[in-house]
Design a binder for these strands. Structure first.
Length: 189
DNA sequence: TACTCGATCGGA
DNA sequence: CCGATCGAGTAA
């Protein structure tokens, strides 16, 4: 049964594990008019607090990063390169600035591409990931088999130095990018 | 207030 | 490989 994942789940101490766990869940957006659109998440990245030099919160609280200090379960959407809206889910307990960047969903590779295709922008910044706000994440029990999920270094964060840029905190489900189903290897929650 | 630099993408 | 495009962050 598909159910919206609750904020409490997002408030875990282990954002890296959560980023991996979100692979295969469904990102759902309910437009002002028309049917909701749901696509399985195929690519994520974890950002882990002020100590993580790749994380926007590496310099502490600022106008932009303030939303990351909220308790997990709200969206953090910012404009990248003056062009692309980047969708992140704030995670962790209150005052712990962690987040998961949604980098890809079925049929839509790339963080900037998926937001453009789904009509997601900074209006969602600071809003809850819930049915009420029209953008949420759903768990229907399906997950790719663990060995189908790849862990790689995060993209575009070389500025963080080898120690942080080298962490394999990006998770990819390659087969999911083309919408292919692999029921034989799917697992139950 | 000036200046730099992006958690990217598409086109040359 | 490079330009687009603009707001946050930093320094002054």
């Amino acid at each position: 049964m598909a159910a919206a994942i609750k904020a409490k789940v997002f408030q875990t101490e282990n954002t890296v594990a959560l980023a991996r766990n979100l692979i295969g869940t469904r990102l759902v957006i309910a437009p002002a008019q028309g049917e909701p659109i749901a696509r399985r998440i195929t690519e994520t990245e974890a950002y882990h607090g002020e100590e993580d030099l790749a994380c926007h919160a590496r310099r502490g609280r600022t106008a932009r990063t303030e939303v990351m200090y909220a308790a997990g379960g709200v969206w953090y959407v910012y404009l990248c390169y003056g062009v692309h809206e980047m969708l992140n889910l704030v995670t962790g307990p209150r005052d712990r600035p962690c987040a998961v960047l949604i980098r890809g969903v079925e049929g839509l590779t790339g963080p900037g591409r998926l937001t453009r295709a789904l009509g997601i922008d900074r209006r969602f910044n600071g809003r809850a990931a819930s049915v009420a706000t029209g953008l949420w994440i759903e768990d229907d029990g399906f997950r790719p088999a663990p060995r189908q999920i790849l862990a790689t270094p995060r993209v575009g964060v070389d500025y963080a130095g080898p120690h942080w840029a080298g962490r394999k905190w990006r998770f990819v489900w390659p087969a999911g990018h083309d919408g292919t189903r692999h029921s034989r290897s799917s697992s139950e929650a």
